[in-house]
Structure formats: C-alpha cells, structure tokens
C-alpha cells in the first residue's frame, strides 16, 4: 500500500477524552512521549490501532486519537493478533502492564512473541498492581510487602526481557518513563521493526510503589547503575567508564567487571542482530536485585519471518491460484465428494 504523506503533530494524536491517571503517574510521561513521537512515523491516524487489556496502563487507547480498543484482562495480544493478521495494512500497538501481560495474560504474550506477530507491545512495568490498589505483581521483588503480602512476597519475580527472549521475541528493548529522549529512540526502533517488538518501560507508580526505579533516574546514581545499549558500541558504563561487560571466564554468560581489569579486545561490543537470542538473554541477566547493572536500550532486533506475512502469503497464494469466481468455487466445493442425482 502506498504511503500517504501526512504531516501530523503531537496535538493530532490527543483524543478529546480527559486523562484520568493519578497526578504524578509515570503514564503521563509515556503518553506525551508517544503522542510526540507518532507524527514521525508518517502513518495516517486511521491506520493506527491501540489495543489494551486491563490495568492503569490499559486506559491508554482512550487518550490516543487513533482507532483503539480497551479490551479485557490479559487478552490484548490475542485480540491484536486477530486484528493484525487479518489487516496487515494496519499498525497495531498493544499497551499492557506487568500484571496484565505477565500474570493473567502470560500465555498470550509468549505466543504472540514466538509467532512473531507484527505487534508493538509496550509493557509498562511498575512492579505493582495499581488499579486494584496495591497488591504485588509478577515483577515485584521477593519479600515485597504489599496489601496481599503483609509478611513479604514469597514469589520470585519474572524478568520480562528474559521472558520475551526465551520466547524468541525478534525485538526486545527496555526504557524508562522519565527519559523522554531514550524512550522515543526505543519506540522509533520498535516501530521500524517488522515483527513482534516488546518494549519494557520502567514506569513509576507514585501511589503504590513510589521510587521503584529511582536509582536508575537520579543524576547521582544512574550512570553507575545503567548499562546503555548501543548497537556497535563497546559495553562500558559508570560515571568514569569504570565498568564493562565481558564474557564470563570459562562460563556461558556475561558479567560486569572493572574496565581496567579487562583487555579492550575482551569487552563485548553490542550487536542487536545476532540470530541466536542467547547473547541478548545473557545481557538480560546482568541486573542485580538493587538495580545495579540494568541494561536499557535495544537488546535484540533480529530478522525473522512474521506470522502475518506467512499467513498472508498462504492466503494470497491460494486466492491467486483460484480460477473461478468465489461463487463458482463455492458451487464446486459443495459438489465435491460423491454426489448423486434424483430426477
């Protein structure tokens, strides 16, 4: 389909609905970043659809002046799959949260990713249930004290990036609500990717889990905590570049070591295109429970056939091979098998 040149602005993507998140919620920043970034895509609004599940983040579609569906808890990836595969001309985005995508909807998420459906999935991770007022989520830390875990959570958390890579997601990235520039750069890369793109966005719930990611945001600590992933660049970080990522000596994975202790040639150069997800998975295992060594940016952006394309090709092939009108094909189909005539 030919691109229709459109010049839209951030304002064009704001709907007439009043935004109703709590004052100070990280969702506002993500909404503004997305609305500001959307015009760059050059896609007319009518060809963009936002599908969400249930949770605070899932109110998102109401605020985007595109097509949108606020569906049911956990099912957005399944619904979006049906839409995307039957309408390859549309740009379909899924907005979800850590409870929606990883608890009730975990099954649909992993299957959308393994199929490589052409969906851009924004997973707002605040490590808490917000809409139901403060229970622990599948990304809450072990021992987390919440309304439903007064003695501390006994559940080990998911690492959403590791989970997505385990499902062989073709594009996986992580970013932070408060870093608009980084957020938009990741969204841009996700939008350009053909296939499933999972973007984990660390998002602050200032009511029930305030400050969950402060170490990654504070100017005093962030440079020592964050590993900024840039394709083709060596993985060094720290306010003086004092840390680097190197292969584990004699092991399978990656580890953080003092830069001065590692030969320059042994420092890992980031490559998002590696077909085997093992490298990206090893990167995803670096963070410590206190958030040290948290990579942000694109972990993996690999080319893999999309479900949408494979299905469409089969249909197109079959339709092209048809040598009669649908009505005549139907008449022939009804007559297939053994028939007999009664006069």
């Amino acid at each position: 389909m030919a691109e229709i040149p459109v010049k839209l602005t951030q304002k064009d993507f704001k709907s007439d609905q009043e935004v109703r998140w709590c004052p100070g919620c990280g969702d506002y920043a993500i909404l503004a970043a997305l609305q500001g970034f959307m015009p760059e895509l050059g896609i007319p609004r009518e060809r963009i659809v936002f599908v969400s599940g249930i949770g605070c983040s899932s109110r998102f579609p109401y605020y985007m002046n595109t097509y949108g569906m606020h569906s049911i808890h956990g099912r957005a990836p399944a619904i979006a799959t049906g839409l995307s595969v039957s309408r390859p001309d549309l740009a379909v985005w899924v907005v979800t949260g850590d409870g929606d995508a990883l608890s009730i909807g975990g099954n649909h998420l992993i299957h959308a990713l393994r199929r490589n459906v052409n969906l851009k999935i924004l997973l707002f991770n605040n490590r808490i249930y917000g809409l139901t007022k403060g229970q622990y989520s599948p990304t809450s830390e072990l021992g987390k004290i919440t309304k439903s875990t007064p003695s501390g959570s006994t559940d080990s958390p998911f690492n959403p990036v590791s989970l997505a890579l385990g499902a062989e997601a073709s594009f996986v990235a992580r970013t932070i609500d408060s870093d608009r520039k980084h957020l938009q750069s990741v969204l841009r890369a996700a939008a350009e990717h053909e296939g499933s793109a999972l973007v984990e966005i660390y998002q602050n719930c200032n009511i029930f889990n305030d400050g969950a990611f402060d170490q990654l945001k504070d100017a005093d600590t962030r440079d020592d905590y964050l590993i900024r992933l840039e394709h083709g660049q060596p993985l060094t970080f720290g306010h003086e570049g004092q840390w680097c990522v190197a292969r584990t000596a004699g092991g399978f994975g990656l580890e953080v070591r003092p830069t001065e202790a590692v030969a320059a040639t042994d420092i890992v150069t980031h490559d998002v295109t590696i077909a085997d997800p093992s490298y990206a998975f090893a990167l995803s295992r670096l963070p410590q429970p206190d958030l040290r060594n948290t990579p942000i940016g694109v972990f993996r952006s690999a080319a893999r056939p999309t479900y949408d394309r494979l299905v469409t090709e089969q249909i197109d092939h079959a339709v092209t091979g048809r040598n009669a009108t649908p009505e005549d094909e139907l008449a022939a189909l009804l007559r297939s098998g053994d028939t007999w005539t009664i006069n």
Binding site: A78, I79, T81, G82, L83, S84, S86, L90, H108, H111
Partner: peptide
C-alpha cells in the same frame, strides 16, 4: 480464550 479473542480482533477489523 485466544481463539475467541483473535476472532473478536478480526471482527473489529
């Protein structure tokens, strides 16, 4: 659940 969800998504489209 996904089966009916995908059907609803397709109907929407």
């Amino acid at each position: 659940i996904a089966a009916v969800g995908a059907a609803v998504g397709a109907s929407y489209g």
